[in-house]
Simulated assay, not measured.
Amino acid sequence: MGIIGSTIKPFKATAFQKGKDFFDVTEGDLAGKWAVFFFYPADFTFVCPTELEDLGKQYATLQGLGVEVFGVSTDTHFSHKAWHDTSDKIGKIDYAFLGDQLHTLSKNFGVLREDSGLADRATFVVDPDGVIQLVEITSEGVGRNAVELVRKIKAAQYVRSHPGEVCPAAWEEGGETLAPSLDLVGKI
């Protein structure tokens, strides 16, 4: 079975978040909420802080959409805190970082590189029922775009709340949608 449309598997991970003590997160904590799992290879690296900072700039927008964000690497929650305390870019970030040193999340989402023990650069959007709706995986040298992630989440939320409608390519909030039917076949 493909990962799109599958339900997230049970997990428990310890999180670090600015201004909070360490805390545990499980799949049960996400029930009824949208969530982003933003996997990256490792703390104290090169492309990763630029992506994480970019996502941090969209965190308030995502929160406004009812979306919780989790940065995930196979580092520990202690490493996440140390990186937050020593990096200008990471120190600005308000969303939570999950430690995945046992590789539970990376294996559950199918992004663990067994040969290195690191996660691929991957994004998963999970709906309030725990179902994976969006996936993006890039090579290690290619950073992601948080503005595009926000656009895709808005489209996924629209489709969820408007059964029978779909969002065409480059759809923006407020734009025209499609209602798939036999009448549209060959006319688009």
Results as ranks from 00 to 15, higher is better:
Ala60His: 10
Asp75Thr: 04
Phe39Met: 07
Glu53His: 08
Glu51Leu: 05
Pro41His: 14
Ala35Asn: 02
His77Trp: 13
Phe38Met: 13
Ala42Arg: 01
Gln58Cys: 14
Phe78Gln: 15
Gly64Thr: 03
Tyr59Ile: 13
Gln63His: 08
Lys81Met: 07
Leu102Tyr: 02
Thr45Ile: 07
Trp34Arg: 15
Asp24Phe: 10
Phe38Lys: 01
Gly99Met: 03
Ala60Lys: 13
Leu65Gly: 11
Lys33Val: 05
Phe37Gly: 01
Ser87Phe: 04
Thr61Met: 01
Cys48Gly: 13
Val47Gln: 02
Ser73Asn: 00
Phe39Arg: 03
His77Met: 06
Thr26Met: 12
Thr86Leu: 08
Thr74Gln: 06
Ser79Gly: 08
Lys33Pro: 02
Lys33Trp: 01
Gly28Gln: 15
Phe23Thr: 11
Leu102Gly: 03
Ile93Gly: 02
Asp24Cys: 13
Glu27Pro: 01
Asp43Gly: 03
Pro41Leu: 15
Cys48Ser: 15
Ser87Ala: 12
Phe70Lys: 02
Trp83Pro: 06
Asp85Cys: 13
Thr86Ser: 15
Thr76Glu: 14
Lys57Asp: 15
Ser79Val: 08
Asp75Lys: 03
Asp88Thr: 11
Asp88Asn: 15
Lys57Arg: 11
Lys92Phe: 02
Asp29Gly: 10
Asp43Lys: 07
Trp34Asp: 06
Lys57His: 14
Leu98Val: 15
Val72Tyr: 06
Leu98Phe: 07
Ser87Pro: 01
